[in-house]
């Protein structure tokens, strides 16, 4: 496995360069339009997390480690989980029950981007959580590959 990944390959690098912005933009689109079109936080988050894999494939271990900070990703994931629970707790603060969509009437009409109340924000926080979480998971597994490379050399 370790021998097959040629990190300095020009074709892979160019392809990674080309596809990474697309993956980022498309993923963000899927996250933000979760309440209007097919998709949602989970799906979009995974698409964005693919960017981590693309960076790894194109540029190798050193660049990946420089670009992404493992601890920051982990803390962002935790923060996103708190954010989700916070939006769920909004219901209690507004005098209704947990998970109540209290903002539904206060935002735009149905069909607009900023509509559907906490669904939009929960979608966003889940997307954020998934992209950081899956990115962190990918980084852990890449770390294993790096150890293998060092041992075999």
């Amino acid at each position: 496995m370790d021998k097959n990944i040629k990190v300095k390959n020009v074709i892979v690098k160019t392809a990674a360069d080309f596809f990474m912005p697309i993956a980022l933009i498309f993923g963000l689109y899927v996250i933000l339009h979760g309440h209007l079109s097919p998709g949602g936080g989970f799906q979009g988050g995974v698409i964005v997390a693919a960017a981590v894999v693309l960076v790894y494939l194109g540029y190798g271990h050193e660049t990946t480690e420089n670009v992404f900070n493992e601890n920051l990703l982990k803390k962002s994931e935790t923060f996103a989980a708190i954010m989700y629970a916070g939006f769920a707790f909004l219901g209690i603060f507004y005098g209704a029950n947990f998970c109540r969509n209290v903002l539904a009437d206060k935002m735009g009409a149905a069909g607009e981007l900023f509509s559907s109340g906490t669904i939009f924000w929960m979608n966003f926080s889940v997307g954020f959580k998934v992209l950081t979480g899956i990115g962190f998971l990918s980084l852990i597994f890449f770390g294993l590959l790096k150890e293998k490379n060092n041992e075999s050399k």
């Binding site: 982990k74 935790t78 708190i82 947990f98």
Partner: peptide
């Protein structure tokens, strides 16, 4: 939720 939030906050503490 307090138990879950305890998990997250203790994760944020580092």
């Amino acid at each position: 939720q307090v138990l879950f939030l305890g998990a997250f906050i203790s994760g944020l503490v580092g």
